[in-house]
Amino acid sequence: MELKITTIIPTDDKELADRLMNSLIYDQAVVLGIVVGNDNWCIDLIQKADRVAYARKSIRRAVWIRNPKLVDKILSSLFSHSEGLIIPETLPYFFTVTMADKACDIILPGEINPDNVSIDKSFRKAEIG
């Protein structure tokens, strides 16, 4: 599995996980596509998200949070700013974050795995804000 533009958040180092997340969210002017979970769906999705983010690498980043408990406060804050979106109760899921640090669009596992164009659409929603 080759990931070119993805930040993989550590699963056992909370301090590092927080630092990485905060840097991506608050220090950089980027939109994020975040995969939360650690199953096959996530493996497939993070690869696609990585390629879609790479297509506009100046402004898009992909993030893989395999252990969401480690950064739960940060995740909560992203959803708290967004209108009408709540953190999915079950894993896995994918969501995008705007430049203004708001959760924007959620993709949940379904019958068919999302393709690159669907993920790009989700990134674009975040870019529109």
């Binding site: 070119k4 696609k48 390629r51 879609v52 790479y54 297509a55 506009r56 690498k57 393709d115 690159n116 164009v117 790009d120 659409k121 674009r124």
Partner: peptide
């Protein structure tokens, strides 16, 4: 995308393939 890509399966497929090849937007 709404006017062309989403409506035309061959364009949609082409776009997907190009993302796979790490092409830029």
């Amino acid at each position: 995308l709404k006017a062309y890509t989403y409506k035309n399966p061959w364009l949609y497929k082409k776009a997907n393939a190009m993302f796979d090849d790490y092409k830029s937007i």
